[in-house]
């Protein structure tokens, strides 16, 4: 088990390096000289050269890359061109809201999709409802869903806040109240896509002989469904959670923007608009690392869920 974890971690490192190289070179290569971007198109060539020398943009790209990596490893992602704030200082306080939103969204998506697809009591009523909700989750764009939910729950019914973020210090109730709509918005798509994967696997598993054996023991349909079909059908969902969570942890762009949550996603949007590349390089790296780590976690969960994998 331990050697498996170590092996997976070691495998993750070349992954991270490779993607970080790609990220750095495509961003800097595509943007051209950051000095031009910072000074605007009508800047004099002398001024651009001066700035390039000042920031070190005149050096070859690979030197800049190594320099950037070295500083990043020491926790220095440079300064934002837009605000001159240290990137780390701009980023750190935004990580928690994003992670919280991502985790809650995933938990809601996984539990609802799995539970509603496994329910055997009243299946005739539950299943069509689940199908319709899945259709909505997959087809309706996130921003529209967010706005619609706000309209219904905040404007018409007036029971939930329209947007914004209440820190923990404002009280748990207030905090969670502000999270409900963003979490639902994030969860909707994943509820639908996890449900599709899970139901396909569920159907396959329910045809297995050991499921018939479970029925022959005299177990009730819901015991068969939740105790035997569910654990044998959940693996593909775990894999999906791994990759989705990694991306979400680095900011649910749309949901954060719609509900003005001070997360990584909103920082990324504003950095993108002002071409503040030290910021989005840093966010890019966080995304990569969190995707790799989450995939690793998913693999470990996989091993925990299926004893047969434990051998290899």
């Amino acid at each position: 088990m331990l050697s498996l974890i170590v092996r997976r971690l070691l495998l993750g490192i070349p992954n991270i390096i490779l993607i970080s190289v790609l990220l750095f070179f495509t961003i800097l290569g595509a943007l051209g000289s950051p000095a031009t971007l910072m000074l605007g198109l009508d800047a004099t060539p002398e001024r651009i050269l001066e700035l390039e020398r000042q920031y070190g943009f005149d050096r070859p790209l690979y030197v800049q890359y190594i320099d950037w990596v070295w500083k990043a490893l020491n926790g220095d992602f440079g300064r934002s061109y837009a605000t001159n704030q240290r990137v780390v200082d701009a980023l750190l306080p935004r990580i928690l809201p994003s992670v919280e939103l991502a985790l809650l969204g995933m938990i809601v998506a996984v539990t609802t999709s799995v539970v509603f697809s496994s329910i055997t009591v009243g299946r005739r009523i539950v299943q069509p409802v689940v199908n319709i909700l899945s259709l909505i989750g997959i087809t309706v764009p996130n921003f529209m869903l967010g706005i619609t939910l706000t309209y219904i729950f905040s404007v018409v019914l007036g029971i939930l806040p329209t947007s914004g973020w209440a820190p923990w210090s404002a009280g748990i109730f207030e905090h969670l109240l502000h999270l409900i709509l963003p979490v639902l918005t994030v969860a909707a798509y994943y509820f639908a896509s996890f449900g599709l994967v899970y139901r396909a696997e569920y159907r396959a598993t329910s045809r297995r002989l050991y499921i018939q054996v479970a029925r022959a023991k005299g177990l009730s349909e819901s015991a068969v469904s939740f105790r035997h079909i569910l654990p044998n059908s959940i693996l593909p969902v775990i894999t999906q959670v791994g990759s989705s969570l990694g991306q979400l942890a680095a900011g649910a762009l749309v949901a954060e923007t719609v509900f003005s949550i001070p997360g990584v996603g909103t920082l990324f949007t504003s950095a993108l608009l002002s071409r503040d590349f030290p910021v989005f390089l840093a966010i890019g790296m966080i995304t990569i690392v969190s995707v790799v780590v989450m995939n690793l976690l998913a693999d470990l969960l996989y091993v925990a869920a299926n004893p047969q994998i434990r051998l290899d």
Partner: peptide, 10 residues
């Protein structure tokens, strides 16, 4: 089929 009669997870 005893090979597939038992639940692999438990």
């Amino acid at each position: 089929e005893p090979m597939s009669s038992l639940d692999p997870v438990f």
